[in-house]
Amino acid sequence: MLLGILVTAIYLLCTLLSPLTGSTEAAGAAVTEGARAAIPFVLEIAGALCLWSGVLELLERSGVSAGLARLLRRPLRRLFPRSSREEGLLSALTENLSANLLGLGNAATPAGIRAAKGMAALGGRGEDELCLLVVLNTASLQLLPAMIASVRAAAGAAAPFDILPAVWLSSACSVCCGLLAAALFRRLWR
């Protein structure tokens, strides 16, 4: 729905705008060029993506995500005081965040949805904590951004992963700001 509107808006706006900016020729060629470019792009990133998915699979099987989940229990208890009184909810929460950290979207979303359902059922404080869970999930916490590293590798980067420290710093900043904003808005909302 949202994407349909977005694509329609882009096509309408750009088609009408290009005569005004004198870029009709470029715009006319761009559509087919874009469709053509999508195929080699996916082929180019697929290799690196497979390598990094393999590394994540190794970490998963070695119990790294279970270890992360144990480490996350204490901070999550403080962030979600109401929900963490229920053992099932707390373990869904830790599973969600540790899978997110490892970039295992397939495992993170079902656990997150389990936690979200439980919180909605609590009402009151639970609904505030549901908002906080969503904010934490929208601020990406990924330790190994495999997709973007693959894109950089395909484009011929000297060291595709040299952006890693920057990604970590920026993610940490975004999570902290999300938590601060949540604490602020939660008070303002009443």
Binding site: V7, I10, Y11, L13, C14, T15, L17, S18, L20, T21, G22, S23, A26, A27, A29, A30, V31, T32, E33, G34, A35, A37, A38, I39, F41, V42
Partner: peptide
């Protein structure tokens, strides 16, 4: 791949349109 096949042309057009 399907999502990229739909969105790449739109992004390329956006890029070329002068917007």
């Amino acid at each position: 791949l399907p999502a990229l096949l739909v969105l790449f042309p739109a992004i390329y057009l956006l890029r070329a349109s002068g917007l």
